[in-house]
Amino acid sequence: MDMKRDYYEDIQLLDSRILWFWFIMLVASLAIFPFLAPNYYIYMANYMAIHVIVTVGLNILVGYTGQISLGHAGFFAIGAYGTVLSMTALHLPFPIALLAGAFIAAFFGFILGLPALRLEGPYLAIATLGFGMAITQVIGRWQVFGGRMGIEAPDLSIGSYILESDRQLYFLIVTVAFLLTLAARNLMKTRVGRAFIAIRDSDIAAETMGVNLTFYKTLAFAVSAFYAGIAGGLMAFLLGFINPSSFNFILSIYFLAFVIVGGLGSIFGSIMGGVFMTWLMLTLDKVQELPYLGSILITFSERWMNLTGLPNIASIIFGLIVVLLVVFEPLGLYGFWIRTKIYWKTWPF
């Protein structure tokens, strides 16, 4: 490590030339990727980036502030519907509509944060679970939201520039994900983030040191919901069509799994969790196309489960991988990363 000459060098994001190099490499490869990769992988990258946004946001709440939410699909839905309806009904331009959707989600996050002041652990989990399920019910009943049939996302344009293909969407989604991830990292390294972490580690000490618990707990919910809202708004355009069943409570569980598999309380872990789990989800959907193993699984599924057993197989394998990961590395993928880093630093000893 280089010698540090002042305090700023100790707190900056990229504190060495090597890190700068990798940072520029990362930006460059993110920019080149859509020109080289086939369309399906661009679509997958978009999916990943959206899930990274949700995972980072949920990690702020679960990993950093120590609260729990089993209702994040609700905020995701609010963001999606908020953005689409702001555009179709209120004729707002896309960037403003996206922010509007996210701020509505943040407002609901604030509301859901209020019971969190009194509830802890399993009780909070149930309260948030109820919230997530209620949101999809409400959306499904109201005709404004298209009811059970759902609504179509309008054309996406920023200024006079129309985004249609997955590649064009890629630049929008990945840029937003990149900026929001950076913002979250900065937030966690400064005063507000420290207050969040303090609440997680010892809320009594935090409040006797001057941290306003009411304010920071609700703020954590609002920020987390804001991230989910932005992600939901982008998801509406990636899917092109949204209906209540795209936001069921299983999705909330998946989001939580992303956070835990990635690593609680780590922004980098959130990125890995979002990317890896999305890849796993999308790949397992096509598990029957695998050579040899695919046909075995199909036979197995037809023999022991019903004919539509394939989704079950995908879920079982998905669950198995998650369980193994958590059992062998409680810190998630971030733990693997740390161990690899230490291994290479001390190699060959």
Binding site: L13, A183, A184, L187, V192
Partner: peptide
Amino acid sequence: TGIWSGATFY
């Protein structure tokens, strides 16, 4: 440092 200035510290 509030939420906005914290998030935009570059």
